[in-house]
Write a protein that binds this DNA or RNA. Structure first.
Lengths: 200, 200
DNA sequence: CGAAAATTTGACATGACTCAACTGGAGTGG
DNA sequence: CCACTCCAGTTGAGTCATGTCAAATTTTCG
């Protein structure tokens, strides 16, 4: 099993990159020098609403969520970020404007973070990362399109089944409230869907 | 006004790129040699379900839609692509697998297209395009996140108002059926929303 | 002008939300 | 180990949002 301790986590990230494109020694050193490991305890914030999002986080272990709290106080989860996922508020990160979203840890989590200026610097020093991140963002976009399609075309029952298929383990790790908030339904309604489900 | 005739449309694209990053003469020539102008008449297909998506299209004039037809025969519009927008089924384009989506022209449209292999070649010959497309895809992803958030957090009336604000002109150019299919509601229900709206 | 498509309208059915009450663990402190 | 609290989850009644279907009306376009 991969060593997910903070000390060796950068090697994990380097291995992750190299599954896409091999890196030179210099590029590996750049990654090692720019990405900082950090531990977040359950319920700690990586980003709070109103702050400018200044880092991009790569999840080594644990799970984060990116979400927005609306005027009525309801939270809407835009993304779960588990092992080997990336998370940030990209809008705030690049515009340098205060974020309307928050990111916090659902479980104790280890992440590797890169600051805004360091990432721009990384892009300039090693254009290979332009390509790596282009590909990563393209994949995210494809996933996001699929989720949007689901959301506008299927009812909540179908969306829930799809969620279980797509994140089989996550369903046991997080409260159902979060799943409801990810699917865009109330916890009560999700409970009713689950209830009907076991009858079959 | 910009010259949107097919013959000069490549200059439009080059200008578009240069608003983000200046290009060298060689890079301009690469763009001019790889992108082909093409006219689509209203209702013509750029991509049909079951085909592999082999091109990325930049819309010079007109409007395209990217959509999926579900098992029940209902169409769900994932994206409208107007002047200066990009469209393709990125999933199919990179995986080389048959697409489950379609792209067609809502109006007579002029586009600039680049083929799969030419785009990969462009990335390799001029890494600046890795960066350009990284930034473009990042912007798309931010927009997509916002739309997803809207969809899971707001009711159809709010979503429609938001649509009108975001695409003020489009609402007069396309049938309401398309707008409904973009918002994830039935045309009948959209009609009722519009009806209530004029009363105020 | 005439046919086909888009839009509207109404009656009814279903999906999904609200609110409040209840249930059942998982800590926590004595 | 027990009593307590707290929070997630469940359940039910009533309500609102949205879908379905069919018919009428308007618009578009050949």
């Amino acid at each position: 099993m991969a060593d997910r301790s903070p000390n060796n986590s950068v090697n994990l990230l380097i291995g992750y990159f190299e599954k896409m494109l091999p890196l030179t020694e210099e590029e590996k050193e750049l990654v090692a020098s720019r990405f900082q490991p950090r531990l977040y305890r359950k319920r700690q914030f990586i980003l709070q609403e109103g702050d400018v999002c200044n880092v991009v986080s790569f999840v080594v272990s644990g799970c984060l969520r990116l979400y927005k709290v609306d005027q009525a106080g309801a939270t809407h989860i835009i993304q779960f970020a588990m092992e080997n996922w990336w998370v940030s508020d990209m809008g705030s990160f690049y515009s340098r404007k205060p974020s309307e979203m928050s990111i916090d840890a659902i479980e104790d989590s280890t992440v590797l973070q890169i600051k805004h200026d360091d990432l721009l610097d990384l892009y300039t020093k090693a254009p290979k990362f332009d390509r790596l991140f282009r590909v990563l963002v393209e994949r995210s976009l494809v996933g996001m399109q699929e989720r949007l399609l689901q959301t506008i075309s299927s009812d909540a029952t179908v969306r829930y089944e799809f969620f279980l298929k797509q994140y089989p383990d996550l369903a046991n790790r997080i409260p159902n409230t979060y799943i409801a908030s990810f699917l865009g339904i109330t916890p009560e309604f999700l409970s009713k869907i689950r209830n009907k489900r076991v009858l079959r």
